[in-house]
Write a protein that binds this DNA or RNA. Structure first.
Lengths: 131, 131
DNA sequence: TCCATTGGTATCAAAAAGGACACTATAGCT
DNA sequence: AGCTATAGTGTCCTTTTTGATACCAATGGA
């Protein structure tokens, strides 16, 4: 997908749309940002399974595609705020429908004694601070 | 995505929905089937860039997820028809919106003398028969 | 002085996805 | 006898994605 896009042209509208928001992380990020501006680590806490690296990468791509805005504050410790761009905002109905569809049509598979994916200690530290 | 699903549970509706239709091939297959039943090689001709193997794999997953129906005719040469299931049909609005969004918001990047991805000779043979 | 915090990078390794290519059976046509 | 068409499968290999882990700077607080 990515590759296609950057390799010069996008043949199909479906592909184009999915390329921009059709992945787990991107859809989730955009969905979270529907509620408003978020800082980097806020997003991280909202998405416990994404690694810092992945989150960064996905945010960069979303920014490059013009879906989100990135505002850096010259402070210490650093502060960076992410928000939807106007273009990103146009995805709102689609994202909500997608969410709705998933909720309606997918029977929640119970974790049935699932062994908890086991995040690293660093991740755990971060997660603690989400109340 | 796939892995997540089959690893037991799906945490998030967005993820669940995307898992089922949020990939290049799956979305395209489903979109094509909106127009009606298609045979295997019809789909292939409609999607010149997918390999036979990929098409098979994606169709199998869609079937396993209950999004499409597969009807085998005991004939020679073989005949297999694919169509949307009732569940798959519920994706229609979503697919059309997705398509619409892509068409509206993504500026078509011109192939600008693109060197034609060069499909194998076998593929070319198949493609010839699409008028 | 040491630790925590923030928003990242860099590097290496593993896993998943995707593509190329060869091969199958059977009937009909030439 | 040889070719075509259909709907695949199997194997191997490459590309892409993802994950784990370590590291960074500067400041404030204990």
């Amino acid at each position: 997908m990515r590759k296609q896009r950057h390799q010069a042209y996008t043949c199909c509208p479906l592909e184009a749309a999915l390329d921009v928001m059709g992945s787990k992380w991107k859809a989730t990020i955009l969905f979270r940002l529907l509620d408003g501006t978020r800082r980097f680590n806020e997003l991280r806490r909202l998405m416990p399974n994404v690694t810092q690296r992945m989150l960064t990468l996905q945010l960069r791509e979303l920014e490059a595609d013009g879906m989100i805005l990135r505002k850096v504050f010259a402070e210490v410790p650093p502060k960076v705020e992410y928000s939807l761009s106007d273009l990103g905002r146009t995805l709102e109905p689609l994202l909500r429908e997608l969410y709705q569809w998933g909720q309606t049509h997918i029977q929640r598979k119970q974790p049935e004694a699932s062994p908890e994916p086991a995040s690293s200690s660093i991740e755990k530290k971060i997660l603690r601070s989400s109340n």
